[in-house]
Structure formats: C-alpha cells, structure tokens
Design a protein around this nucleic acid. Structure first.
Lengths: 141, 141
DNA sequence: CCCCCAAATAAGAATGTTCCTATTTAGAAT
DNA sequence: ATTCTAAATAGGAACATTCTTATTTGGGGG
C-alpha cells in the first residue's frame, strides 16, 4: 500500500485531496504497529503542522468507511487503534496493555446479512473483538 | 428474571448488596427496550434518589462481566444500551436512530478461542455488532 | 450488639471522540 | 486565470464514559 494508492481511492470516490489528508495517510504508513488517533496526529504534524485532532478523527473514520483502515476498539475509555488494511480481519485485544493479535477469519455469518436484508436494513459495516489478558498482563495482577 | 435472582448472583460472587444496586436492577427490569445508562439512572433515582451516574456505569459494567447484561455498542459517541440477558446474542444496530435487532447466532469461532489459548491469552469476553441503516432512517436521508 | 475493613459510593475531574460553526479551499465551470 | 460552491478544516464546546479521591457502609467476627 502506497500513499498514491489511497490518494487514488479518494479521487475515485469524489473526495478532495487535501494536504491534511496526505499527511494523515503518510503518518499511517510510517507507523510500525497500529497507531492511536493522537499518534497519527503527531506524525501528521511533522509534514503539516496545522492539522487538528478533529480532522484526524474525521479522516480515520472516513478511511474505515472506505475499507482502507481497520479500527481496533479497546475498552475502558482507551484510545482506538487503526491498522492499514491488507486483508479484512479482526482482533484479540488485551484489556491490560491494549496490544492486539490478528484473528484469522471474519466470523460474519451470511445468515445475519440475510436477516438484515429481510428487516430492510442497509448494512454499512460490522465490529468484532475478543477481549482478554495477554501473558504479561496476567502476571502483573 | 427477577430482582431476587440477580441479588442472589451478587451474593454468590461475594459482592455486597447495596440499595443502589437494588435500584439499578429494578430500573433494568422495569424498562421496555434496552435502556441507556442515563435512562437507568433516572429510573433508579425513583427508588433511591441519591444514586450517581458513576455508580450506574460501574454496576452496568459489573453486570455485563457477570453475564447478566448484554451491552449494545452504538457508534458516533451515542450512548450504549443494556439488555437483560435471556440468552447470549448480538445485535444489528441502526446508525441513524440507534434501534437494534437481535441476531440469532453468536459468531464466535472455536478456532479463535484456541488461537487465544495458544498465545497465552486469558479470554474475558467479546463484542460483535453489525451496523447499518433501518428502513425509516434510509428514507430520512 | 458493636467494631472493623474491604468494598462501594458520590462528586467532580479527566479522557477519548464527536459535534458545531465560522472560515478556508480543492477543483469544476466559466 | 477567475469565479464559484460544496466539501474540508480549525478550534473549541459538548458528550459518553471512566478515573481519582475522600467518605460511607454492608456484613462478618469478636
């Protein structure tokens, strides 16, 4: 995944290409692990100092909607983390330190999508997380 | 499910039985749909005026952990809703109005639990939601 | 019945995220 | 190039939820 690939997706979908967006995409690609929104903000401000946190959140959400990012929901008011999509998947999340392990398979059932259709719902996405404690955090208790 | 059933569970697990807890359980049982935390607060204050919002959240989380409640995570900073457990299940949630439809089957895969075990994780729970727009909210757009 | 203390609570501060509004701007049309 | 407009932004307010700390209390043991 390159910056230009994401830019291309923005153009295809009719979204504008702003310097803030370039900076945010760059920041995401430069991170090692899945960063939090504030980590993205910091990295984005290197190339575009004025970016606001709101803009970061707005665009992270947009990228999730576009299918370019996976959002990892932690618990206890901890910051979510965002991972560039290679293939669609979900996470096993540590309640202690927030680290995550990728799960192999998306558990979304065909039956549920049919049910949604029957009920007249227009499905936009889904979320799935398994919560627990990693070996290190179990010792800390 | 009666108030006394939940009270019994509190005692079994070594938790204290406080008037606030009685009021909260009452409030949950008196609601028609799955209420939000503030709706629980309002109803609980009828029987115990002094209850604080923090106490409501603390006990709702405890009840989820105990397996007595299902938490329905909405998006966009909307309040979560809490449903008394009859049997374990998940929800199809409307992004517009927050209404939810119960899904028939929990999609948690045995394979994922094995993976968690291999990685040394102690699994505490999981979350699954499908997001979309209900028929009414599709028209509003 | 009274003491004791871990557990529970109230109140408000703090945190993560979204919303509101006035201002700016990308990119299409001229 | 210039103008125009819907989309995007910055900044701060608002919101849901959790955390911190000092105080209270349920319920077990003397």
């Amino acid at each position: 995944m390159r910056v230009l690939d994401v830019i291309k997706q923005f153009k295809n979908k009719g979204y504008k290409v702003t310097p803030q967006r370039r900076a945010i995409i760059n920041a995401l690609l430069l991170s090692d692990g899945p960063p939090t929104a504030t980590e993205v903000l910091e990295k984005a401000r290197v190339s575009h100092p004025g970016v606001s946190l709101d803009t970061v959140y707005r665009n992270l959400n947009l990228l999730v909607e576009m299918g370019c990012l996976i959002q990892i929901n932690l618990k206890n008011n901890e910051k979510s983390r965002f991972e560039i999509v290679k293939s669609h998947h979900h996470h096993l999340v540590c309640l202690g330190c927030g680290e995550s392990v990728c799960l192999e398979q998306c558990p979304l059932l065909e039956r549920d999508l049919e049910l949604a259709k029957e009920k007249g719902y227009k499905v936009m996405g889904h979320a799935f997380e398994i919560y627990g404690y990693c070996p290190a955090c179990q010792k800390t208790v």
